[in-house]
């Protein structure tokens, strides 16, 4: 494992910790999209089915379990927690997730490397992860002033993707025969989706202003 991959994973881990801290410390999930969190849980569950039959390393196993449990935990907070659930604004978080999940499933059934249940679900999770942030970005755009921690969460999540791009470039240069086109193309699209957000995040940070996205 190279430094970019490790830094990417740590950034991903940190983003979730920031999100959980925000929810727990402020007892509020204002500005957090439940739809995106549910999509991520679906992504992790469909991708990490291999926990049941293949082992790569203790590191991988731990991280997979962490991602599944933490996104489940965020969803539990938003849906079930007595005070946090009252701060969830479902009227703003209206993205139709089936418009994302259905095309991803059709694509996974069409473009995959092996027509088996686990491989199609794995491919589905790669496609779905690429677009799962969209409900969150739409919600941020609707929120006039984005609170710092929510902004940081999305920034770290985008940062993790950017580091994975570097990881792939490193692997292409160092591992003969290494290729994974489905992952590369989806990952590049996923990172590109953050470009606009990055621009406004860095601008507000440089001007010392609160983040607000133009509508």
């Amino acid at each position: 494992m190279n430094i970019f991959r490790f830094a990417g994973d740590m950034t991903h881990l940190l983003s979730i910790i920031v999100l959980l801290l925000k929810i727990n410390a402020t007892k509020s999930c204002a500005g957090v999209s439940l739809k995106t969190q549910e999509l991520y849980l679906l992504v992790f569950v469909t991708r990490y089915l291999d926990l049941l039959y293949s082992y790569i390393s203790l590191y991988n196993t731990f991280m997979k379990l962490f991602f599944i449990c933490s996104s489940g935990c965020v969803i539990w907070y938003i849906r079930e927690h007595k005070t946090v659930s009252q701060t969830y604004d479902s009227a703003q978080d209206t993205f139709r997730v089936l418009f994302l999940a259905c095309p991803c499933m059709i694509l996974a059934l069409t473009v995959n490397h092996d027509f088996t249940v686990t491989e199609v679900l794995w491919t589905f999770s790669i496609y779905l992860e690429a677009v799962a942030i969209l409900p969150q970005l739409v919600l941020l755009q609707r929120t006039k002033n984005v609170d710092t921690l929510t902004g940081n969460y999305v920034f770290l999540l985008g940062g993790y993707r950017a580091l994975y791009l570097l990881n792939w470039i490193y692997r292409i240069l160092t591992e003969p025969g290494y290729r994974q086109w489905i992952v590369w193309i989806s990952g590049t699209i996923q990172t590109a989706i953050y470009c606009d957000f990055f621009y406004y995040y860095i601008k507000s940070w440089r001007n010392n202003e609160r983040l607000s996205l133009p509508s």
């Binding site: 994973d9 991903h12 991988n60």
Partner: peptide, 10 residues
């Protein structure tokens, strides 16, 4: 199809 590597990333 050429074989892709094992799914060793997260």
């Amino acid at each position: 199809y050429r074989e892709e590597p094992a799914h060793d990333e997260l």
